[in-house]
Amino acid sequence: MSLVELHAIHKSFGALEVLKGIDLSIDEGQVIALIGKSGSGKSTLLRTINGLEAIDDGVIMVGGKKISERDTDLLALRLQVGMVFQQFNLFPHYTALENVMLSPQVVKKQSKPEAREIAEEMLTKVGLADKMMHYPDQLSGGQQQRVAIARALAMKPKVLLCDEVTSALDPELVNEVLAVVRQLAEEGMTLVMVTHEMRFAREVCDKLVFMHQGRIHETGDPEEVFANPKTPELSSFVGGLA
């Protein structure tokens, strides 16, 4: 059974229909890349998966259970589905360690030592054991993003959504973040990522989803899709990048 299933998702911003009936299932351990031109709806789709964007029509199922718009359902959904953002979005008034500890403490009601242990473990995992007491503005972009990943992981989500996690980084900092994402993929974490890193997508992902004008235009194994794009749109998208 799929971890997350999306059926016939529709979403409009005013008169603009951004998602025009999306079906997507995310299986446990799968690493999915959402690619496409800007405005194709890939970020919006990602944000519907954890309820940051309310959908107009369609069904989202997590673990076989339908998610409604009620707050309790949304909170239950978000316990399963973590997210990392393009702009890191660390809380500026907390240290790296406090950023990671906050939600386990207040949401999961873990004790301070318990939360601290998990936070230290996660920050060590992303290579920041020596930066735990730093505030976000004392960290580089790559370091901030790795704290954000640790923060999401500390909630032990079943799925991690990554929204262009390297797009705001200086080129020399991209690799340290991608290395962490790659490590997560290798450990079997279920990942859905919107990315412009095509080489990375090709190497790490199991499934490529190409979006075009609010629809899933083409999907399949990354090697296959990149080597033999079936549609002219994907062909030109891939060609335009090369």
């Binding site: 954890n50 309820g51 940051l52 707050d71 909170l75 978000r78 316990l79 589905v81 973590g82 997210m83 953002f85 702009q87 979005n89 660390l90 809380f91 906050l102 939600s103 207040v106 949401v107 954000a148 923060r151 999401a152 909630m155």
Partner: peptide
């Protein structure tokens, strides 16, 4: 407060009261 901060807190399954108080 940047909207991204609030979205990050939402994504961590914090409810409205928790977001207001801690973030």
């Amino acid at each position: 407060i940047p909207q991204g901060q609030i979205e990050a807190a939402q994504s961590l399954a914090m409810n409205r009261v928790q977001i207001f108080r801690y973030v």
